[in-house]
């Protein structure tokens, strides 16, 4: 007999692209890396609105949302997702992101409620560790 603290089902993460930004190389690499790390990954595809992304997360009972923006629209679109999560009572979902985001913007986004911002060059291992840890905590809380 063994006891285990491992979750009954794998962590589930939404990888999302918003706005008009078609740069999906990073999002696809992250999606694959998280999947290879044992998570269930749902990639939204391109051109999603903040409402659509949050709806997908709720419908899929996701533990986390990773949003990728490389078009410069991050200061508009990240806060809208935070707002939507709050409005839908889903702000326990771990919301993180990445892209071409200057440090000072990243700091502001974290202040607004984005849990982490990964910029170009961030190692996959660091992102995986973050998602496992934070989404794992969320899973323990909400079951």
């Amino acid at each position: 007999m063994t006891t285990t603290n491992a979750p009954a089902r794998p962590l589930r993460v939404i990888v999302a692209k918003a706005g008009l930004d078609g740069h999906d190389r990073g999002a696809k690499v992250i999606a694959r890396a998280l999947r290879d790390a044992g998570m269930e990954v749902i990639y939204t595809g391109l051109f999603q609105t903040p409402e659509q992304i949050v709806q997908t997360a709720i419908q899929e009972d996701a533990d986390g949302i990773g949003l990728s923006i490389l078009s410069g629209a991050h200061m508009t679109l990240f806060p809208l997702v935070v707002e939507q999560l709050k409005a839908q009572g889903a702000d326990d979902v771990v919301f993180f992101g990445g892209g071409t985001i200057p440090q000072e913007d990243a700091a502001e986004l974290k202040r607004l409620g984005v849990r982490e911002i990964f910029t170009p060059g961030a190692p996959l291992s660091e992102i995986i560790t973050f998602v496992e840890r934070e989404c794992g905590k969320r899973r323990e809380l909400v079951g």
């Binding site: 008009l20 930004d21 078009s71 410069g72 629209a73 200061m75 679109l77």
Partner: peptide, 22 residues
Amino acid sequence: DMPTLMGYDSDSPKSLGEVGKC
């Protein structure tokens, strides 16, 4: 910019946050 490349005017809701950025 992205809205111009995707065929949206600058006042379209689709253009939110993207005007003049790229």
